[in-house]
Design a protein around this nucleic acid. Structure first.
Lengths: 178, 178
DNA sequence: ATATATTCAGACAAGTCTGTATATATATTT
DNA sequence: AAATATATATACAGACTTGTCTGAATATAT
């Protein structure tokens, strides 16, 4: 057995890349096991259903995303503005594929409660990031909203320009209120 | 022939409801023709492929959405704030299914250029709505961004609360600048 | 009246999808 | 040493997918 005991993480790694790149419904189990170099029975050994894999994928994405944002911003004083630079880097790395969670939102029915929960948790965490940096909670929610649209808008137009534009708006807003 | 000459519009009406409710990849041709009460050959007579139907669907949605927004806001002086009330109405009518165009964005690969074009056109139109109402173009882009996130956030949390919260923020922003 | 446009019903092709079953091999734990 | 956990390969079921094709009926336009 060439890769004993690592099948699960290879599956998750492949799912992470494929779901994010192609979307959930556009990615089949067979493609995942092929990319992960894993037998189909191995996938279904670790994950009961595709939806189970989806949940694990979102958990993974949340962890990785939060860590990345933390690492990217930890040595900067202007953490709020740094988040926008982080987004720019993400857009480059993932070719403007937007937010994994919002992409999943579009493909998911609300009665898949665990999946909805994962998406909500992630966004609550992001809002918290801005709330931690900004005392004014209305300002934090504004910045959060602007950040969300920076993700969407750069995905839609496949351009960093919206990010830069919104970053400037956020900068202005923070200066006007301080 | 029970319904001669109306097959095309019945198809579009069914597609409009189903794509918006279930998403694009979760909706099959067979379901559409069943709901539309139309033969499969009739669908492929009017639309070469499912992607062609998708484009027609987006065109239709754009027209209907713009008309609805116009009608909803035309008799009000505070058109910007009225747009948020319009969103609340939409959320009720469509059970928080969010924006047809952003939902499609998540399921679409960027090399489907016509589809991307439709989505971009719609958002440019929405931005223009706010630009028409607000002279300050930076403020217009801010309000546009906040509106976008009001759509997303209410879809994600299946609640009108984010809309109301963001509406208040927009109201504050407009007062501070006037 | 004849050509053209539109509609119908439904079978079919060729492929994809998720998930199950079978049977075996190799590690790890007790 | 025996039991358990993890892995392999692959065939299969059953449902679904988009799209094509046949062949006929009806309506509209010239």
């Amino acid at each position: 057995m060439q890769n004993h005991q690592e099948a699960k993480s290879r599956i998750l790694k492949a799912a992470e890349a494929l779901f994010h790149k192609q979307g959930y419904n556009n990615t089949g189990i067979n493609q995942i096991i092929k990319e992960a170099n894993v037998a189909k029975a191995s996938l279904y050994y670790h994950f009961k259903t595709k939806d189970d894999l989806c949940i694990a994928y979102l958990e993974q994405r949340n962890t990785v995303w939060n860590e990345s944002l933390y690492n990217y911003t930890k040595e900067r004083d202007d953490k709020v503005l740094a988040a926008f630079d982080f987004l720019i880097e993400n857009n480059n790395t993932f070719d403007f594929r937007g937010c994994s969670f919002l992409n999943m939102l579009s493909e998911t029915s609300p009665d898949k409660k665990e999946i909805f929960n994962q998406m909500q948790q992630h966004k609550r965490g992001l809002l918290l990031f801005f709330k931690t940096e900004l005392e004014d909670s209305e300002l934090a929610y504004t910045v959060y909203s602007l950040f969300e649209n920076a993700i969407i808008e750069s995905q839609l137009f496949r351009s960093q320009e919206p990010v830069l534009r919104i970053k400037k708006i956020v900068s202005d807003l923070m200066n006007n209120r301080s």
